[in-house]
Structures are given as structure tokens and as C-alpha cells.
Nucleic acid binder design. Sequence first.
DNA 1: CGATTAATTGATACTTCTCAAATCCTGTGG
DNA 2: CCACAGGATTTGAGAAGTATCAATTAATCG
Lengths: 234, 234
Amino acid sequence: MKEGAPISCEFCGLRDLSAFKDLDATELHVVSHVKTCVFFKKGQVMMHEGSRPNGVYCIHNGKAKISRLGTEGKEQILRFAKGGDLMGYRSLLSGENLSATITALDDTHACFVPKSEMFKLIEENPRFSLNMMKLTCHELGEAGKLITNLAQKSVRERLAEILLIIHRTFGEDEEGFLDVSLTREEIANMVGTATESVIRLLSEFKDDQYITVKGRKIALEDKNALIRIGNVYD
Amino acid sequence: MKEGAPISCEFCGLRDLSAFKDLDATELHVVSHVKTCVFFKKGQVMMHEGSRPNGVYCIHNGKAKISRLGTEGKEQILRFAKGGDLMGYRSLLSGENLSATITALDDTHACFVPKSEMFKLIEENPRFSLNMMKLTCHELGEAGKLITNLAQKSVRERLAEILLIIHRTFGEDEEGFLDVSLTREEIANMVGTATESVIRLLSEFKDDQYITVKGRKIALEDKNALIRIGNVYD
DNA sequence: CGATTAATTGATACTTCTCAAATCCTGTGG
DNA sequence: CCACAGGATTTGAGAAGTATCAATTAATCG
């Protein structure tokens, strides 16, 4: 982790996507000056499960995964994050230790906003508070979906759905492949299954021409089939 | 659903447990006068998945379950609620439809606080906002735990853990039985498994003398054994 | 261009689900 | 208070779905 190129909040194109969208010019100016710009290399841990954060990261560009350690130290990926997403706010706001580890999936530039500034904004700007609540409550809804899926769907269904989620989150590159590099193990740790099961099912999907695989790169060729297989309704 | 006995917020013993604990005398007085007291019979639905709530319920006494419909209409129980707990705030704050149904597990008295009042408090009292955020963020952490458990633990482990969770949430009656009446199917819908599996595993736990069963009533006789079986660390 | 890590495939074992049938409760109405 | 209907619980048997272990091949990063 080292200092990155300074990015000014006032001119950040992602601002409208974030909880900071309703700050006035003065507030924005302050945030822009108290924040720090940080760079993480691919694979680097941005925040550690169990520790206490002193602020939040706002991702400028790059990708990250949010994961927890389960029994036997096995990783469970809870969700992904990309540009405009805030990381570490759950722990900061609830006053608990970090319940998850955040790891960069790519070279990532992020802005660190200190705790004091976050609480000052909450204190002074109800609109910001409401944005933070919206964000959290939305995540809570997503978590409920995931819980239901894990509890009720088969591994095959879950894998199909998660391929679609990855597509929705990160989109595709110029060749049509999912625009993120995940190992089979990471996919398994999102689906909640064994690596070998993911491999077998991906082969199946490939044989059925629902996807194309080229090394670690995966392209969704028949999204409707995946929607059907995954029983994805929303 | 009919009018219940009026309960005044000022004298509500549960207030300190709820997000309303930091309201000043005036605010509390207002809430107490705009709220409605409502009574739900055991089994009655308090809020319906997919609908848009016009406020939140604060449970005065009684018990409720929060559940979602999964594929094939199967119920997935996300969590339970009891006196002092707020219901429906996730949807209200995120501005989305209700993502879950809330059903009374017992005869339940609850206070309905209208949406307008909730947003007024958020607008005017940052401490209240912060309490709401704390609440939501804490739930989000719990959801993460549940996700990890569902993805990684066996049905046997999950059942052991959920018996402990039920104990922690509802405590025990004078005979030492878990103080809530759940069908085997409801337990299965919390664990995320088939009803028959729950029945078989409960018999096993009974044979091993970890629990005692008397009809629908269950008593935890050896909590340490359940902690061990469930790999429960927190 | 090695060395290491990741991906793949096969064989086998185990957990869990599903279906079916029997028994037991529980709440309800007479 | 009792009898009954319908739902809930229990048990068994067999089928699926997944996990695990082991061995090979492929890919990736210094």
C-alpha cells in the first residue's frame, strides 16, 4: 500500500454513484482534503477481518472481494466491489471489528476517508446519513437473497446464478469475457462448494455451449440458459 | 390485526434496547402520539414480502419470524425478532419493496410508527440516524455469518448452531424448554434442509442426550456438546 | 525456462434428499 | 369432554448430489 495519484473528489466521476453524492461544495472540499489516495496491488489485502478500521475506502478504480473465514479457515466470498463502492463502513458504523477481509482482485486505487470525517458528515448532513442507510439496507436485502439461495439451491443452480452476478458486477472485456480474473477456487468460495465441483460444472456448461472458457477467462454465451438453470427471477 | 392496548413510549421498558433510546423527551412524546398499537394473533402475517411498508413495527411483546420465499415457494427463515426489535425498516430505508415476510410466532403486541415520523427523526436527530445505522450494520454482519455457515457447514453443524441461536434469542421457559413453538418444518427452513433431516438429527441429538424432546418442545441439555458439534466460536 | 500453483479428471464414499407409509398430535366442533 | 379430521412427526429405503482423495496435466509468474 503506497500513496497513489491524488484524485479530487470534486471532479470524481464516480461521486454520483456513491454515498457522497449529496454533499454540498464545502463538504466535498473538506472530504477531498482530508482523504488519502492509496494504491493496492492485485492480491493485496486492503482491510483485515478482526481489525478495527479507522475509516472507509472508496474505490476509485479496480476490483475487490469481501470475504470471511469460515470453519477450518476456508474462505467464503460474500460479495464483490468495484469503482464507486465503499468498503469497511459496516464495521465503522456498527462499532464492531471487521467481520470480513477485503482483498484487491486487481491493481486498485482507493481513497481513504477517516472515521472522524465520516461521523462528522453523519452528524451534520442527514441526507448523507440517509444515503448510508440506503446503502446498508440494500446490502442487507442482497444478503437475504444470498442466504435463501445458499440454503435452497443446488450447487449447479448457484453456479449459474453467480456467473450472471459476476457479469452484472464487472461486465465483459472487448472479447466478451467476464472482466475479472478469478481462480476456480475463488468461484467455488463464492458458490460455497468444492473447487472440483465448480470445474466439473463449468465443463458441463461448456459442453452445453452456455459458456466459453479460455484458461481463466469465461464468456457467457447463453445467458438465458443460465437464467433458466439458476432459477434467477430478479 | 386490531387495535391493542395503548402503550406509552415514555414508559416502555424496552425503549433502551431499541433505536429510539436516544430520543429526547419531546421527540419521544411525539412518537408516542403518532404511533398505533396493534395486535397480531399467532400465525398472522404482519408484513408481506413484495409490498411497500408505510412505517415500521416495534415489537412490544411476542415473537416473529422474518422469512423469504425461495425457489418453488419454499420458505427460508432469515432471522427471528422479539420485544424491542424493529421490523420493516430495511425496506423503508432502502426505498425498496419488502424483501421478506414477517409472521407472528406468538400473540404479539406491536407499535406501528409511520414512515413520515421515521424520516423526520432521521432528518432531525443524527443520534437516531446513527442508531439505525448501527442496527442495520450489525444485522449485515450477522447475515455474513449466516452466509458463511450455510455455505460451509454441514446440516448437522447448522442444526446444532441454530438450536443455540434459538436459545440465545428466546431463552427457556420454567421447565427449561426453548421458549418458542416452532414446527420441525420451520426449524428445517431456518437450517436450510429437509424436514426429515431435521427430525433424524434431532433424534440423534436426543439419543446422545444433548437435548430433550417433548412434543414440539426442545430443551438443550448439553450446550457445550452442541457448541462443539456446531463449531460455534463466537 | 523452471518451479510452483492452478486446473482437470477419475474413482469412491458419504451426506442429504425424496418418496412413501404409518403413527401421532392438535385444535375444533359437537 | 370427547371424537375426529387434518396436519405434523416419524421411520425406512433408495436415489441423487457433492465431497474427498489421488494422480496428471496445464498454466502462470518470477
